[in-house]
Design a protein around this nucleic acid. Structure first.
Lengths: 250, 250
DNA sequence: CTTGAACACAACGTTACGTGTGGTTTTATA
DNA sequence: TATAAAACCACACGTAACGTTGTGTTCAAG
């Protein structure tokens, strides 16, 4: 027989918590002294340990109560449900992580918090990823979309992203460069290298993506790849191609 | 100028919430009618949208208040902190996911909830993963441990695990089989196949793991690989090896 | 000028306890 | 055995971020 204080010390649960569990009928002491002090036995201790285990699994006290009352068959189901919940929450957090990362990159690129960009980024991730990609469906088929999704989620390391940001930052700072200049060509080629690395060897996908980027007029596309950057690269490459053709002709 | 109702409809935020934000001084209306009705202007609307954005990022209203008051330089830091927090929470949830999965498998194996096993599994994952592996450090070096960690986290698909569980379940149901019998040999070889698939082609790692499994007496090792199973497999293989040697001699 | 909608303000409920306060019971010491 | 000290009980209020409900007031339309 333990008093509430002993039980508290044995389990690390505060007295107040045990008090509360008694109050809501989760763990009632199996006896009381004549003076009204609560006395717990080993059965109660076991119950408490089970409650703590269920709490660790993330169940609410309400559910724990229900689970402990009707024993046997619901258990597996409850745990499965909890597992699904945990998975969903993880997905939410991963989205949030991407959002926060995007915002951090935007701060780094712009030098300060740009609210329109923040809103765009949030909008981009807020809806489920499928909807976010829906705007591309004119240019990409389903397989390609899945590839892009996977790429965005797994293939890009911290360092890769950093390189991207640096590259785009550089281009943004030189948007007014003469497209025929060497510097412009270097910038565009650096971008192309990045893109090819990212899309590995899937030239088709890169082409489709590029077409999509060019045609999607509105605001942010894939942050930090905005319209200005896309148009800059486009100008540089068209001009260089024309020059090369002329060279080939002569 | 919007009344509280208009602002509510424009933003999708309930009137009560705006009421509350006014109450805690987060967004105060910039004017009031003579009758005391609140009037919000476009500045207030912008503020509200920023608050919503920060809320989406997971900040508490308290922090949002602080952030909105002292503007500029703390932003990046705050967001970085939030990002770190999100990452930590994700790690916690991943651990929890593993725990819940383990418990589900244990239910499948035992046919019911076995509390000692549940406690072991929780203990296994509760502490950070490094500590969980510390018990193996007598038998594995750092590189090997990292490999095991990665394997546990990524390489195993749902189906792989299912196969494992089936295999172990089968063995558990036949622990008292004669180690020289064909059935026993089949079971042990099935286990070996699984193990080789899991460890791919890293025979050394498999050997070290096996040694560790044999020597770690206490309770759960890698659930669902408990002592009984390990000893069964050990018996079968030693006996079969002896027989083969005798055959070679004769 | 009247009605009904919109609004302001207040109070209580939610989760899982923390943090007290004052009074009672048990235990240890003199 | 008397008294001090520790443990305990019950009660109540506070947390975050609002939802819900209720009452009294003001606004806009007819």
């Amino acid at each position: 027989m333990y008093t509430i204080g002993k039980l508290s010390k044995n389990t690390g649960v505060t007295v107040r918590t045990l008090d509360y569990y008694d109050e809501i009928g989760l763990i009632k002491p199996s006896a009381k002294t004549s003076g009204g002090h609560r006395l717990y036995n080993d059965d109660d201790l076991m119950k408490l340990e089970r409650v703590l285990a269920l709490k660790y699994m993330g169940f609410s006290l309400d559910k724990i109560k229900v689970i402990m009352e009707n024993s046997n068959p619901t258990w597996e189901q409850s745990i499965q449900q909890q597992l699904d919940l945990v998975k969903k929450e993880q997905e939410r957090l991963k989205m949030l992580e991407h959002t926060l990362n995007g915002i951090l990159y935007s701060i780094e690129l712009e030098g300060e918090v740009s609210w329109p960009i923040v809103f765009s980024i949030i909008q981009l991730y807020q809806q489920d990823p499928e909807k976010a990609l829906e705007q591309y469906k004119e240019y990409l088929n389903i397989e390609e979309m899945e590839k892009v999704m996977k790429m965005n989620a797994t293939n890009m390391s911290k360092a890769d992203i950093q390189e991207w940001v640096e590259c785009i930052k550089d281009i943004k700072n030189h948007l007014d460069l003469d497209p025929t200049s060497d510097k412009a060509r270097v910038l565009a080629e650096r971008w192309l290298n990045q893109a090819e690395k990212m899309f590995d060897c899937d030239e088709n996908l890169l082409g489709s993506m590029w077409e999509a980027l060019q045609n999607m007029g509105e605001g942010i596309v894939f942050y930090p790849m905005d319209k200005d950057v896309v148009h800059f690269i486009e100008r540089v490459f068209t001009i260089n191609n024309q020059q090369r053709e002329r060279n080939d002709d002569s």
